[in-house]
Design a protein around this nucleic acid. Sequence first.
DNA 1: CTGGGGCGGT
DNA 2: ACCGCCCCAG
Lengths: 323, 323
Amino acid sequence: MLELRLVQGGLLKKVLEAIKDLVNDANFDCSPAGFSLQAMDSSHVALVALLLRSEGFEHYRCDRNLSMGMNLNNMAKMLKCAGNDDIVTIKADDGADSVTFMFESPTQDKISDFEMKLMDIDSEHLGIPEAEFQAIVRMPSAEFARICKDLSTIGDTVVISVTKEGVKFSTRGDIGTASIVCRQNTTVDKPEEATVIEMEEPVTLTFALRYMNSFTKATPLASQVTISLSSDLPGVVEYKVAEMGYIRFYLAPKLEEDEIETQVEARPQVDIRPKAETKRKVEAKPKVETKPKLEIKSEEEREPQVESMVVETKVEADLMDDE
Amino acid sequence: MLELRLVQGGLLKKVLEAIKDLVNDANFDCSPAGFSLQAMDSSHVALVALLLRSEGFEHYRCDRNLSMGMNLNNMAKMLKCAGNDDIVTIKADDGADSVTFMFESPTQDKISDFEMKLMDIDSEHLGIPEAEFQAIVRMPSAEFARICKDLSTIGDTVVISVTKEGVKFSTRGDIGTASIVCRQNTTVDKPEEATVIEMEEPVTLTFALRYMNSFTKATPLASQVTISLSSDLPGVVEYKVAEMGYIRFYLAPKLEEDEIETQVEARPQVDIRPKAETKRKVEAKPKVETKPKLEIKSEEEREPQVESMVVETKVEADLMDDE
DNA sequence: CTGGGGCGGT
DNA sequence: ACCGCCCCAG
């Protein structure tokens, strides 16, 4: 039996708006620690990881771990029927093939029940190793969204370059070039306007703007966004979900044209894809891949001490390093 | 070397939004007097003249006259990336084949650089004679925009009729007719709400609404619009650009059906088109043209005293009678 | 002036 | 689904 009561129903609406364009179907995993989701986008280039901690719910009952496969578009459709400050309750019986969303208007005058069929989705739970990043940029989420949108009117990719002084976003396209520099700035009136750069060493990476623009759908969730970069890891774009957890988007960097020949094979291969998937791709395309793929190991491929981090304890592991 | 620094970057954004639908490519002319543009729309029916006086810029450096051919859509795309109260700097080296737009956020935390390729556009600088108009209407720009939009749902052309009492806009279409009269009104709370008519003699002219509606894209620039009419001249729709200059749109009146036969040849031919262009059209279509064409002489065709008004001094001449 | 919400078009 | 548009509120 599962029963999760969330006072700020609007949060869940925004969460679904943020991920439904990237991922069609995904399993929501419920454990005593929280409500979470991990899924790759349909082209296997980006990965979304959502966590809503149990403490963030007004009421959280989860008798045993449950994985519920949902069509995110359909779920979003139902959640759209909730008011922004309705109280949302998610209910499912163990082993049931459906989930119920209940919306209570703030005045309790209106109670809505939506029932949605669950789907059987086979996706392995991917272990995402915690990594040290060479640079972490925190900046206003709206500003980041604006930059990605603006740059995508000029080019298809963004080069993000972090130095101590600031972060530079640049692109190039048929009509010209663009370069936007945001300086570190911690002396602002409101903390949500700050731009903070934590940097161990300068990093320059290239990403597809198409995905970045998808990620910025999460902008309404948080006033700040965190961009974490290392030269040999997928970039991470993270939005906090108020008091509850986060949505993280992982995106493999594109190789610069002149890097492709020399570096693609030398890179540490940390592959996030499930084994079968990885094999198939490799067999199908034995050549150098210029299309970026996320490189994080799947659970089975990881080191023994990680291997032991089974699904039941995994969410807690994630919790530890949040915030 | 050219370097123009404009504190109200939003103005330039609005200027481009106002003209980019009418003109695809045009030369911006920089002289010590200011930053200006003259261009005909692609169907050679309307003409846009923009002037931004050098005094309106915070910093204006223009070592020598420069004509920069730009694709206005691409320029508008780049300017859209500026915030409305960013400071905009336009930079170009003499003889360079590109121009740079720099945007500084009000807080200076964000600096954007956009570089755009210039194009080679051969357009003659058209001399637009200053004329006396039989009637000049000044009215709220939003009201004029609304009228043009409303009338274009009924018909394709607007008949503008000015008398001492007011100005009448009327149209006729398949579904019926419409007529909107605005009375002169100078006793208003705010000066921007006034409707003022300066009239020497009554005028009635017909214009294509399609162009009028294009012109009203400039509405955000100014709270008032000036419509200047004479029976034998193109109509002029003018929007002031705050403290800096103006955008003027010239549009040839349509001949009323019953006027075409009797008047078209009798009209004073003041043709704005470059000579070659004029010739070609005439050769191609020796018949009576029912499509209106702007009738202002090009530089070479004009009278001696106008002839001497060469490009260098021309902007200043425009300045004289502005305001 | 910006942000948000709603709308209508493409 | 996206974007531009319009209105309102803060």
